[in-house]
Amino acid sequence: MKNLIQNESINFQYNPFGGLALNEIPKALVPIDHFNQIQANIENEKIKIIELKGKKGRGKSCHLKALQLTNPESAFFQLGQKQTNFEEIINSSKQLLFLDSIHYLNFIQRQKLFKSDHKIILTAHFSRHIEYKLAGAKSSSFNFSGISQDKLAGIIKNRIKIASGFEGPINLDQNVLKNLITKHGDDYRSIINHLYQNFDQC
């Protein structure tokens, strides 16, 4: 890969394209256009479920974590690999719940949760609008798809700043960015993973 980072004087403490610490996620994130609308819907008492939907690698989980940090009076559950107990979720003392990867709960558990008193912000690969309707819960859905060169550049620059502490302007080769989008489409994670594995050539 041709050099993406044009600056020569950046000293990296580690590869900037790896997994981020929780407190680094908001610093790396370039929020989607309707980020403020999601936040407004969280505060809107009439809306019970907020769904962040999209294919893998489009930034749903990152946005979910960043949203949870802006709402500290809430609980975050990473479903799936991290053996979370359903009882722990449904009996949570927090009213506002952030659930990553809702598909790891079965239909009955999901219905129980959607009918509960909790307000839920969740990530899903496809819309579960019918399930929300079935549970009688008002919902809103936000789609995570599409990519722009500017947004990708923003994310890469933010990550470089976090990993290096560099505060000056960062110059990225626009042709390399363009080629990354041509090759990986709007799969941000695939692009970031590719950059991780090819960092020595960046």
């Binding site: 580690y14 590869n15 790896g18 997994g19 981020l20 610490a21 929780l22 680094e24 991780y196 594995q197």
Partner: peptide, 11 residues
Amino acid sequence: LEIRGLIEFED
């Protein structure tokens, strides 16, 4: 000790 990479960050 930090583990960074193609994983969830570990500290």
